[in-house]
Design a protein around this nucleic acid. Structure first.
Lengths: 409, 409
DNA sequence: AAAGATTTGTTGTTCCATACAACTTAAAGC
DNA sequence: GCTTTAAGTTGTATGGAACAACAAATCTTT
């Protein structure tokens, strides 16, 4: 409908804004209205939005009308009968728009459809050890799951985008996975999957698993920020990924490779790592290292480790203490560098978070310069294996919310 | 003149924009015009600006007229006689607006006045070892220097703000210096200095020395970005400070304490640090550590160390190798975390940059996961001792450029 | 040297989105 | 049933950019 000029002001972009026209004004205010409704815990009326945004009721009214027509917002029939005066019409996120989130991991494949209200409207999971397997075959399987998930979504739900979470170094610009050591993949393209989605009118966006999982911590629902606005997310799988979130935004870095915490050096004299360096965090707190140093079989689970530690097994406790010290050094560095004094442990590390926390807390306190004024806090993420898939869908929905005007008409 | 509503859209802020009015449009485009003129290496005409911004000539003309009237821009009389057609009027940054930059360091005090063209129009420097001295007395002396510098500026130059660079942890919100180990200061307030500046109609903004010095690397002149847009700046003094710059913006962190690279742990089994941790970078690459391990007297200079190393002194070479290794571990971590593959060595470290570079480069190559695709580069900053003062002034001028409309009329 | 060509900068006019104010709607209270 | 209150809607005014036409100043061509 409205022609989007590349030179125009883009909201949500860190790059400096371009020329602003009358239409830019409207787009900006429409996004503001949208954000306000989505961020609220309780449904807001047009008048509420007007007050919160300091726009006038008339302006809000016209913007909301367009958003409702475009299914981005919806009017809740039941007036929340309170007080006198004309009853308000509660506004909530629309239910007719959703995005596809995909994920490839060492042990499973996932395809999800998440709507603007944050509900999973369709899902297909498949557990399988794909390490070392053929990439194109695995991606073909993922394509099937994706097709099934899309087929399983109600007909009145329109899909607006698709994202894929990958455990490795992604070149989003080229649409390639450069390296995923723990899948045994390198330089993989996604033309087949991308082509399949293009038939459904969707473009596929690649992303790092940790970056996307961190989004599920930053947002409790699309456009609704959680209490934690600044934190470092640690994704403990076979490898260790990470993401830094500031002001609710995941820091991408120059090429989108920020947050590679697994290969931060914890001890220059430490054990060699597959990456070529020595003493990487992964060699202390990665799944393989945790299991090996605690005397568990290589295919054990974090739950087994937690069980052994809770039972008082000395080797397991030593393994966890070693990991906690390493995490303290690495995360202490992160806190000193980024000034983000909140740590969220996800994946395997979340499952043994209570065991790691005491020693990690102590390390952070002594190793971060700012601890005397703001003491670092440690949190654990809810253990959803396919958090990356949800995050991938959330990113697409966020893109919509950043410029809802582009989706109307 | 124009009433600034706190709820309005603020350019340059990372926080989400508020309501946009007609006037916001004008402010945004005025800032865009301003930015375009300031960023250009050669003077632009109104027509050039119109083409670059994709605004119309008429719109640019009216905005420029206001900016010229407000002294933010100036018309260069001499038409740059080229080609036919009506000769263009070259536009350049105005010369009538400037900001005050102050700096306190262990060995000197500085007061500078920098104008919108980036010229130092007045300056007072004083070399003095103030470590352990009384803070209020030193600040009184700085106040005198500041007064003299202001008195030394031409009468037709209007000052728009003042900034103070401090080598320590600053609480900008409270206007306090929380801790400056290398000055021997803690919890210092600046009410006297702030009051003195208030008489001249200026507000004093505090800032970290490294953060502000990094600005002088990011901007070659006010509003004119340098070729390096993403880099990590390392300020080597007695202590080591740092700053991460992304897209030309210094990352502040949650409380403004980001970039404390001096206390990143390089070896958990390393020597104890004054901060309470062990194996901090400062214990390897700080001035005291460098001088001690190279057998030079405690009050030696980096130049002496460089001289000894260039002469082949084995102890000096070993000291530098030790520092380079430590820098490799710490900066490798930073590159892995932030994905900013450019390092700028400033201060002492800049003076011995050529000696550090080979080993540092090798360490970065092996310790950063992304090095196989993008090789980290190492640069040295021009050695201006009072770079922090210039940076403090640049920050004030940037604030003006981000919203020039606030300064007109 | 004079007319045409070309580019810069300015001046009305139109268009569009928000502000503002008045009005309508629908409930609660008396 | 009338008044009060708050939500939502409908004109009208205002401000700023787009658009188009025009004036200014220099170079090119004949």
């Amino acid at each position: 409908m409205s022609t989007t000029n590349a030179n125009d002001f883009q909201l949500g972009t860190s790059s400096p804004p371009g020329r602003a026209r009358q239409s830019t004004l409207r787009e900006s205010n429409m996004a503001l209205v949208c954000r306000t409704v989505f961020a609220s815990q309780t449904p807001l009326s047009r008048a509420d939005v007007a007050e919160k945004t300091s726009l006038t009721r008339s302006t809000v009214s016209r913007l909301v009308d367009d958003l409702v027509a475009g299914k981005v917002l919806a009017e809740l029939g039941q007036a929340s009968t309170s007080g006198r005066g004309r009853p308000a019409i509660p506004l909530v996120p629309g239910a007719g728009l959703a995005a596809v989130g995909l994920q490839v991991n060492a042990t499973f494949l996932a395809a999800r459809v998440v709507d603007l209200r944050g509900r999973v409207v369709a899902e297909r999971l498949e557990h399988d050890d794909i390490v070392g397997g053929d990439a194109s075959q695995t991606l073909g399987r993922l394509g099937q799951l994706c097709r099934q998930a899309i087929a399983g979504t109600p007909g009145d739900v329109r899909l607006v985008g698709a994202g894929l979470a990958l455990p490795g170094i992604v070149s989003a610009a080229n649409g390639r996975l450069l390296l995923a050591p723990n899948l045994g993949w390198s330089d993989v393209n996604f033309t087949a999957l991308s082509g399949q989605l293009a038939e459904a009118g969707l473009t596929l966006q690649l992303g790092n698993e940790a970056d996307l999982a961190a989004r599920t911590v930053a947002e409790v629902a699309p456009g609704r920020p959680s209490a934690l606005r600044d934190f470092v997310y640690l994704s403990g799988e076979i490898g260790i990924g990470g993401a830094a979130v500031m002001d609710g935004q995941v820091m991408a870095g120059r090429h989108g490779w920020a947050g590679e915490l697994g290969h931060v050096c914890v001890d220059p004299d430490g054990p060699p790592c597959t990456c070529g360096s020595t003493g990487c965090l992964e060699q202390y707190a990665g799944r393989r290292a945790l299991l090996a140093t605690s005397g568990l079989p290589p295919h054990g689970t974090p739950a087994m480790l937690a069980g052994a530690a809770h039972a008082g097994d000395p080797q397991a406790l030593r393994s966890i203490a070693r990991a906690a010290s390493a995490l303290g050094v690495a995360l202490g560095g992160v806190v000193n560098i980024l000034d983000i004094p909140a740590i969220v442990l996800g994946g395997d590390l979340g499952e043994i978070g209570d065991l790691l926390a005491p020693k990690l807390d102590q390390q952070l306190q002594s190793r971060t310069l700012s601890a005397r004024w703001v003491r670092p806090t440690i949190h654990t993420a809810s253990t959803d294996a396919a958090a990356g898939a949800t995050g991938a869908a959330l990113r697409e929905l966020s893109a919509l919310l950043a410029q809802p005007s582009a989706w109307l008409g």
